[in-house]
């Protein structure tokens, strides 16, 4: 007994999640490109991606639900399917964040250009790198690579805090730039959320591969003994 059909279904689930991940990653990159060049046609592409992501989210959830109901998976298979369900939700939120950024770009396009003290492309590059690395960890079932993603989150958080400080200062001191600064602040916040979703994805991968629940435990991230490892 090798459960050929079940294994095929698991492979299909993984493949669909990777398609979903590709769409989410592309949506973020497009949203940032739209921000950089202020191109509304790119914003339209992001909106279309978001619809595709939502459709795929439902399909993946249904496939995972079917496997839970029909195959009663155990151990690593059970952890894999649970992780897929959670990663799926996080990727959908990444898609939402991309759409949110593109909507800010639509608002900003109507405003006068402003030189704001925030490096959105740099922050986006780091958040995208986290998403990309976590997906690489998913493809390779590599818990160590996933752990490396967790350590990157602090840098994005710091960038978001710095953006908040700098942009509120702009709002206080140069009130005519307040609308632009507010939109940039919201984009910064969306990117910080993308990094959080990448962190969640990395945590789910560690759970799948090692059976360890590392959520909310910095000591685990840094390699100390895991008091919450299963068993």
């Amino acid at each position: 007994m090798t459960r050929i059909r079940f294994q095929q279904s698991l492979d299909d689930l993984k493949e669909n999640l990777l398609v979903m991940a590709g769409l989410a990653e592309q949506a973020i990159q497009r949203a940032i490109e739209a921000y950089r060049v202020r191109d509304l046609s790119i914003c339209d592409l992001v909106s279309r991606s978001e619809l595709a992501i939502n459709r795929l989210e439902r399909e993946i959830d249904q496939a995972a639900l079917d496997l839970l109901a029909m195959e009663q998976p155990m151990a690593i298979d059970l952890r894999f399917i649970l992780s897929v369900i959670k990663i799926n939700a996080d990727l959908e939120r990444v898609g939402d964040a991309a759409k949110s950024i593109s909507e800010r770009v639509r608002h900003m396009e109507k405003m006068a250009a402003a030189d704001l003290p925030v490096d959105i492309p740099r922050m986006a590059a780091l958040a995208s790198e986290m998403v990309r690395k976590s997906l690489q960890a998913f493809i390779e079932a590599d818990a160590e690579l996933a752990r490396s993603v967790l350590t990157m989150d602090d840098a994005v958080d710091a960038m978001n805090r710095a953006a908040y400080k700098a942009l509120t200062k702009v709002m206080e001191e140069e009130s005519h730039l307040a609308p632009q600064a507010l939109n940039a602040l919201m984009i910064s916040r969306s990117l910080e959320r993308v990094a959080d979703h990448a962190t969640n994805i990395a945590e789910d991968i560690i759970f799948w591969v090692q059976g360890s629940d590392v959520r909310h435990h910095k000591s685990v991230i840094l390699g100390a003994n895991d008091p919450h490892a299963m068993g």
Partner: peptide, 25 residues
């Protein structure tokens, strides 16, 4: 030989995992 929870969610031995996930037997 372990708690049922451990055996069915995260067994220590690869042979146990292969059996309970239906990869042999």
């Amino acid at each position: 030989f372990d708690s049922t929870h451990k055996i069915f969610t995260n067994p220590s031995d690869k042979r146990t995992e292969d059996y309970i996930t239906g990869r042999f037997g």
